[in-house]
Simulated assay, not measured.
Amino acid sequence: MRRKVTVLEFVAKNWLLLGILLCIVFASVFPKLGSKGGPLKPEYTVKYGAVSLIFLISGLTLKTDSIFHTFKQYRLHLFIQLFTFVLIPLYAQLVVKVLAFFGVNGWILRGFITVACMPPPVSSAVILTRAANGNETAAIFNSVLGSFLGIILTPISLLINLGFTTVVPLMGTVVQLITTVLGPLMLGQAIRNCTSFRGHTLPLGTVSQLALIVVIFTTFCDTFETPEMGLTASDILITVFFVLMMQISLLWVSFHLGKYNKKYFEPSDTIAIVFCSTHKSLTLGIPILRIMFHGFSHLSQISLPLLVYHPTQIILGGMVVSHLKEWGQKHRRPPV
């Protein structure tokens, strides 16, 4: 007979998801606390503090030989980048055609297309992959690679899918990636290889996940502080519903494509595929939207799908982490 799971065991297993849900509630009550310009100053503490800490810990814990091995997994990287920059925009075009048939607001539909053209984020996908015991090195590599590719591919994709484009803030994006991702990652590797410190006595995984929760809290604070000018209740409900359906279907497709390509992808690779290929960046997305649609009275409607997509991907990610972790452990190939 299967033993019943106690409340404490459930909390211990799903504490990341529960923490995310508590963040949403707390952010809805005190949105000014973690919004941009608020007391927590997330534009500095989160952007350069929490995110940098996440990648410093990754640098401390990643084995250098696993990094070199990951560079050789070109099929994995190609799959993730094609899924991100080609398959999702094509899928979004199909979804938009269906929604247009039902008379959904045309500006919201443009927002869906814009979301689909965005590059991946550099923090949430990595932490969720790590929490699920996936290929963390591949997650880091593809998050960084996708962000750099996004500088070129996102404007091209927008031009193809919307008919016009914008200039992505090249230097700002490069500097941010170096200072918050590559710099801390290399520092962690230097500490690991030049000293005897490995962090085994410290709960580094828990610290990383707590840092992610801080990032999530400030993201939701900004979301709740965003004015809803020109948005009706039906606009919001329709957007939330279809973003949710879109993400669930993308998670399902990415998982099964990775799962059935056993010849090329380990279970840990499939876990990285699930998070890295379906997540989209709010950090780069909002500036692009503001440049593209500066002065448009419909900016809030265009921005709505991205504002909904970002927190939804984190919530869904938190919900599937424990299931993917169990699946990965069950199907992990024995060492040769």
Rank of each mutant, 00 (worst) to 15 (best):
P311S: 06
S249E: 11
T270A: 10
A138F: 02
I216N: 01
I67V: 13
A138I: 03
S58W: 08
V51G: 04
I67E: 09
E326A: 13
L202H: 09
T226W: 04
G111C: 07
E266D: 14
S249R: 09
F164L: 06
M186R: 05
S66W: 13
V336Q: 15
V51D: 00
G146D: 00
V5T: 09
P305T: 03
V144A: 12
G38W: 02
L324N: 05
G328D: 06
C221D: 07
I288L: 15
P169H: 04
K63V: 07
V29F: 11
S123Q: 02
S254Y: 00
N142K: 08
L282F: 12
M319D: 05
P89H: 00
I140R: 00
M171L: 15
I314T: 03
Q73E: 12
L170A: 09
T165G: 10
S254G: 07
I315T: 01
P155C: 06
K32Y: 13
V336W: 14
H331R: 06
R290H: 15
L149W: 05
Q329V: 02
K97T: 13
T278M: 10
L149Q: 03
K263Q: 14
L289N: 04
P203S: 11
I54L: 07
I288K: 03
F26E: 01
G205D: 06
V336R: 15
T64K: 15
F26R: 02
I213W: 03
G258E: 00
H77D: 01
G103D: 09
H69R: 14
S208T: 06
F101A: 12
G230V: 01
